[in-house]
């Protein structure tokens, strides 16, 4: 290896920084969609590298379902304060009231689908022309198909059969009025890449990513945290377990994994050895149908 060869993480990092700067150069009103999860935390780290000592040319935007982990919300507020960037929060709760939306029912009533309404309203409110997100192609098979600059029509819809060609690292962000672009700087990162990067960059994470004790119920082999947002059946047994989260979504649709991994090194060894994918192990909402993600994306979801 010569002095001028780069590790694969350096390649991925430089690619992501380049994408961030293309967004800054091409759009008038971009936004960074920030969820408080490890992927969007990684995005913030990459944005710092792309724009410091300048300010971010976009605000952080959080679509709050009201079902978030309190630890993730606290982390979100602290991070925005620490880096001194603007944070916009819009609540799904407000959209439900204003638009008379019907809340899904059932044991794990998830607001995941309703989130899209709030997102589209927020895009409209601030006239965002580009929304940067932390989706990765390794997460799910419909995501594996998406461009880095993914054009959405005025209803936020993705048309997987009519994607623009995307050549080299030349990104075409031109759009018609009303359309917007979803931009995915870490498209080519895997779950393990993200963890390795977090370790390398010594990025702090919300505590729920590390092993802790929690009351959970066992739902068809998945451990779901007991919270105000899920309705327990009389037959449910509440168990006290040592768990951590692999992804941070809503409390209603994200499952925990049993783990004693209390630091990054242990987490990386666990993920290297695991035989189950991130979504398969932790997402309750993707099991509904084979094309659940594709359908949600077609409707404007991230």
């Amino acid at each position: 290896m010569s002095k001028y060869s780069l590790d694969y993480l350096d390649h991925l990092e430089s690619e992501a920084i380049h994408i961030f700067r293309e967004v800054a150069g091409q759009f008038e009103r971009p936004a960074l969609l920030f969820s408080g999860g490890k992927d969007s935390i990684t995005l913030v780290q990459l944005a710092l590298k792309a724009f410091r000592p300048g300010k971010f040319p976009f605000p952080l935007v959080h679509i709050d379902t009201g079902h978030n982990f309190p630890e993730a919300l606290a982390y979100r507020d602290e991070l925005a304060k620490k880096i001194g960037e603007k944070l916009i929060v819009r609540n799904v709760e407000d959209t439900i009231k204003a638009k008379h939306l019907t809340e899904p029912k059932g044991k794990f009533a998830s607001r995941n689908a309703l989130q899209t309404y709030t997102l589209l309203d927020t895009i409209e409110e601030f006239k965002f022309d580009a929304c940067i997100g932390g989706a990765r192609r390794d997460e799910e098979k419909a995501r594996a198909k998406e461009r880095i600059f993914s054009v959405r029509d005025e209803f936020g819809q993705w048309d997987p059969k009519l994607q623009r060609p995307e050549l080299w690292n030349t990104y075409n962000g031109r759009i018609n009025k009303g359309e917007n672009v979803r931009v995915f700087p870490i498209s080519n990162w895997t779950e393990l890449d993200v963890w390795n990067y977090i370790r390398r960059e010594k990025i702090e994470l919300p505590s729920i990513y590390f092993s802790h004790e929690r009351d959970v119920i066992d739902h068809e082999g998945q451990l779901v945290a007991v919270s105000d947002f899920i309705k327990l059946d009389p037959t449910d047994k509440v168990l006290r377990k040592k768990v951590r989260y692999r992804t941070v979504g809503d409390m209603t649709c994200t499952a925990a994994v049993e783990s004693h991994a209390s630091n990054i090194d242990d987490i990386i060894s666990e993920i290297t050895a695991t035989k189950t994918s991130e979504r398969g192990e932790t997402r309750i909402d993707d099991k509904v149908s084979e094309a659940a993600m594709e359908d949600r994306k077609k409707n404007g979801y991230f």
């Binding site: 098979k141 419909a142 995501r143 594996a144 997987p160 084979e290 094309a291 594709e294």
Partner: peptide, 9 residues
């Protein structure tokens, strides 16, 4: 494994 779209399958 790679044909991830409904139309593809």
């Amino acid at each position: 494994l790679t044909d991830g779209l409904r139309a593809e399958r």
